[in-house]
Design a binder for these strands. Structure first.
Lengths: 156, 156
DNA sequence: CTCCTAATTAATAATTATTACCATTTAGGA
DNA sequence: TCCTAAATGGTAATAATTATTAATTAGGAG
């Protein structure tokens, strides 16, 4: 529980209670959280913490590779402790994300990275589509509203 | 040059010049473009097209799986014609994206998707890290500024 | 070819997500 | 204990995207 303390102080960054709390929250969550969600959670412990502080620290921590950014589908950026494998089936309708147990970061890919002098820090593999429910829902909609029915207007 | 015409009109959506132009631009570009960039390009042909129209159509086209959204690193969402393989080494500093020639969407993954009743539409595989240059730059910075030197303050 | 209507558009206001700014506070080494 | 760079809270500013609305248009029916 202090690899990050080293990483920070080794570079002259201070160990503030705010940082402690943010990392603790990320450590206790298995989900990936948005800055907003982290802010809310943080405020339960220390109500005066500013959202700007949350953002500032998440950026710093991401830069130091202590946390990692996750840009699933749309909506705000999400964060989690660095190091996990982030491979999901993501529903483009409802946003549900099922973890995949497979990791594509292997032989071939590593070789290409090396050839390019690329310093790999992290990787994401996302399979986008529609979960069972939403897939069904869409098929029904399409069956009906072909060329009329409801408001063909906006969606998503 | 009309698979998308069918997809649209089959569902009662109209074939507007705006849509034509947007898709033409995406077709002629090998890069993935932001809504803003598409807007600028579009306006060269038809200066009166509103950015809102660009966004609206990109959303619709994405929903119909005619184009696909690409959320590389930070910055705005990018778009390209659906169907390409989107596998990159992405530099977290300068944003450079090198295409990978490897596709992880194979056996195992397809099986998991199927088991979940998941309708796969697209997939992205991103390897995040630092390109040769930025990697070097960072190492130099760290060597110097350990615990002092410059503004330890913000960074991305 | 003309008419009609739902779909679409342009323009702009509103909303979200994130960053910048600045005066004040604080971590942590001398 | 003191000092200073780093960090914070509060808020204004910016960027990206969506909603709203009155006016226009694609494309099928007659």
């Amino acid at each position: 529980m202090s690899a990050w303390v080293e990483k920070l102080s080794a570079r002259g960054y201070k160990i503030t209670p705010q940082r402690r709390i943010i990392l603790e929250i990320l450590g206790n969550s298995d989900r990936h959280l948005t800055a907003e969600e982290i802010g809310q959670e943080v405020r339960k412990t220390e109500p005066s913490i500013s959202l700007a502080t949350v953002y500032r620290n998440l950026n710093l921590l991401a830069d130091l590779q202590i946390v990692s950014r996750l840009n699933i589908h749309d909506g705000p950026v999400r964060y989690e402790l660095h190091g996990g494998h982030n491979h999901h089936l993501v529903c483009m309708d409802c946003g549900v994300a099922v973890k995949l147990g497979v990791c594509p970061m292997q032989g071939e890919v590593n070789r290409v990275a090396e050839e390019n002098g690329f310093e790999v820090s992290n990787h994401h593999f996302e399979v986008l589509g529609y979960c069972r429910e939403c897939s069904l829902k869409r098929k029904l909609q399409q069956a009906n509203s072909t060329a009329e029915g409801g408001t063909a207007g906006d969606k998503d």
